[in-house]
């Protein structure tokens, strides 16, 4: 599946000799790791042998052959950071996440890595979270850093990360736009629906960035509640035909303006969602 989707990256860099690293970087940026399938596709399309590509992919630490968590945390253990207490920071991060360096947390949120130098020695100890540099980190700051990472990306990240993109959605019943330009989440217009739970109705907004998972509602919706969603324009209930693969609640379908469907799980706190650009599964 992924194999066909890396083709555009390969074509973009194919003209330049030695474009292999650029191709691998592109794939890594999009998927967060280099899958076996994608490496085989690169070998096939560029005419290089898989051995050579595998050698490059395993040589550089920037490439990962295993799926990484949503958030990548690197703690610097270079000389300068080391003498300023880097190992204690790394240990604290490991303790709080419950993983060793190079591992991903079971929930897939964090991947923790140590780095030999992150190039900001005067500001050590350095911790980098998803491209954000935290300087002069103490063990007391670790908790906040991890919390901030969970809060989601800011504008710069959105522009840089190919995995995050904006979707504009319409109601599947009346085809009216559900975008709320007046209320921004993640710096982008939010998607507005009416949520109904326990005989209460409240405007419910979520981020239009695919994969962000940020939600806001005027009335607090307790976690694990199954919400009934209504279109704020035609007031029709949005009910899907399929159940969430993770928790079994009904999936809510929305029409993506550029084509296809997106389905989100109706259980509060369940982050399962799927994008179906062809609409084949519906």
């Amino acid at each position: 599946m992924e194999g066909t989707q890396v083709q555009d990256i390969i074509e973009k860099h194919e003209q330049t000799r030695g474009g292999l690293i650029a191709i691998l970087e592109g794939i890594q940026n999009r998927y967060g790791y280099l899958s076996e399938d994608s490496l085989r596709t690169v070998a096939e399309k560029t005419g290089r042998s898989l051995v050579d590509i595998y050698a490059v992919a395993t040589f550089y630490k920037a490439f990962s052959l295993k799926p990484r968590g949503k958030h990548l945390i690197s703690a610097c253990l270079g000389t300068a950071c080391h003498v300023r207490g880097g190992p204690a920071i790394a240990e604290e991060i490991q303790r709080q996440l419950g993983v060793e360096a190079g591992e991903t947390t079971p929930d897939g949120e964090f991947t923790f890595e140590t780095a030999a130098c992150l190039g900001a020695c005067a500001l050590g100890p350095i911790v980098v979270v998803d491209g954000h540099y935290y300087s002069k980190v103490g063990t007391v700051n670790v908790k906040n850093i991890l919390k901030e990472a969970l809060l989601g990306p800011d504008e710069d990240d959105i522009k840089r990360d190919e995995r995050i993109f904006r979707v504009e959605v319409n109601c599947p019943q009346c085809n009216h736009s559900l975008m709320d330009v007046g209320h921004l989440i993640d710096g982008e217009p939010s998607v507005r629906l009416t949520a109904s739970f326990h005989n209460k109705h409240t405007p419910f907004r979520f981020s239009s960035l695919y994969g962000s998972g940020m939600v806001e509602s005027e009335e607090e919706v307790p976690v694990d509640t199954i919400i009934n969603f209504f279109c704020p324009h035609c007031h029709a209930e949005l009910v899907g035909a399929s159940n969430c693969a993770d928790c079994g609640a009904l999936m809510v379908p929305l029409i993506v303006r550029s084509g296809g469907m997106i389905q989100i799980c109706s259980r509060r706190g369940c982050k399962n969602h799927m994008l179906d650009l062809d609409g084949e599964n519906l």
Binding site: E36, L39, S49, L50, V51, D52, I53, Y54, A55, T58, F59
Partner: peptide, 25 residues
């Protein structure tokens, strides 16, 4: 054939097939 090559670097460097699977070539 180019079935085997170097993998990794430093003390983790090794020789073998990609993904440790039997090579097609």
């Amino acid at each position: 054939a180019k079935a085997i090559g170097f993998r990794g670097r430093g003390e983790n460097r090794s020789i073998g097939t990609p993904f440790d699977e039997k090579s097609d070539t």
